[in-house]
Design a protein around this nucleic acid. Sequence first.
DNA 1: ATCGGTTCTTAACTTAGATTAATGGCGGCC
DNA 2: GGCCGCCATTAATCTAAGTTAAGAACCGAT
Lengths: 243, 243
Amino acid sequence: MTFASHAFPRVLETSIFRIGLDDSDKAHLGSLGFILRRYPPHAVISRQGDGEDRIFVIHSGWSCISTDLADGERQILDFPQKGEFVASRAFEGEAPESFTAQTELMVFEAPAKAFVAGLAHSPSLAGVLLGAVARQRAILVQHLTNLGRRSALIRTAHLLLELGVRLEKANAAKKYGFECPLTQYDLADALGLTAIHVNRMLRELRERGYLEFRHGSVHFLNREGLEHFAEFDAGYLRLPGET
Amino acid sequence: MTFASHAFPRVLETSIFRIGLDDSDKAHLGSLGFILRRYPPHAVISRQGDGEDRIFVIHSGWSCISTDLADGERQILDFPQKGEFVASRAFEGEAPESFTAQTELMVFEAPAKAFVAGLAHSPSLAGVLLGAVARQRAILVQHLTNLGRRSALIRTAHLLLELGVRLEKANAAKKYGFECPLTQYDLADALGLTAIHVNRMLRELRERGYLEFRHGSVHFLNREGLEHFAEFDAGYLRLPGET
DNA sequence: ATCGGTTCTTAACTTAGATTAATGGCGGCC
DNA sequence: GGCCGCCATTAATCTAAGTTAAGAACCGAT
């Protein structure tokens, strides 16, 4: 009994894999070789172009998945949260994305090969994985829509609302908001803006009485109003099978 | 022997599913109930919010996948091409995206349930599906990066280069370019720009000697130069297993 | 306690892309 | 043939967001 075999089932309870698996599936998941690892802040866990063959389940801490551009800029694709899984292109081929820790980060890791091979023995696990992949896709699609067709102000609000809901689903939010160690530069790289403009947008949201983002935590002041203003509908964050 | 059972194997030869399947897998695929259907231009095949349970493989024609915004605008997510598959959220739950024909469109359709159930009996098909899903994700990720961090000019070039490569892989490109029935409004909705600005960007690309887009066809004049200018690297369009 | 780095904040100015408006081409249809 | 609707094209103007610059607040390290 390693540390991992203790902690892993516990994380599953609030994870993306919590729905649709019976005990034997979960036992099976536990046998796929997930081990718990720790990365320090700013550690690059996998770099764009690597031949990557691990899959990850977040245990705690913040990280980001990003593409790196030629001129040194980056586009952040997502901030995966506790219980969510990361497998940029683990299902074969080189990783077109980087995975970087932002705070101290604890993740469960397993070799992708073992994981994929394991799917053949557990149809319900395969189904749950497809559901999780579909949810990731929906998140990416909303992000893309944000960048393409929404104003900077709404875009910023939308991202913070989304993170709020995802953290709630992972039981990692507070009643009024959530802890968020992201800098305004991080937000800018996710939102396709400059950090200066993000600062303006946060001020605007504060002045309009929607939310405060100070000292590393987001505090919703008028969440319902904000959701309406940002045309935010959390439906896309629901897991298949979740009510 | 229906029409479909004739045409379907033939399309597979140039499709996303061409690699990694042996004859028995292909026979299995053929038994999943794919039928060939025709949709007229502008037909809405599935609408955002539908409980959707079909999956599609494009046979011929152009279509788009999009999200519809409250104010009547839309963000086009992708233009799926011959041999590629479409299954917005078919793996359970409601479709957060619309699927619309742009020209006359021929597609193979099958019930998602039968397809997903079939995966359990064919591990290699499941693996190939995961690969196809990973490629779709990579396309989406490039699109997102385009919107977030690239200029309108490069963004436009990048999209046209991508479509060129995808059509070549489907054996549907000409030596110097490809037929493209998209309007500048369609491009605008994909690129997060206005049609007027797309027009300016196409003129600019023409004046710089990179490409011409006239009378429904894209003609590359200096493809290598353009790929360099647009930082375009087709690696992300490769299928796992493809050389 | 002081220094240096990182992050936040604000103001002044510039620019890429949106908006508005107008024109011409082209194909379908009565 | 002439009308109508869609699409391409261009110019003039406006605005959201970027750029540059410069402090202030905060933090850890010496």
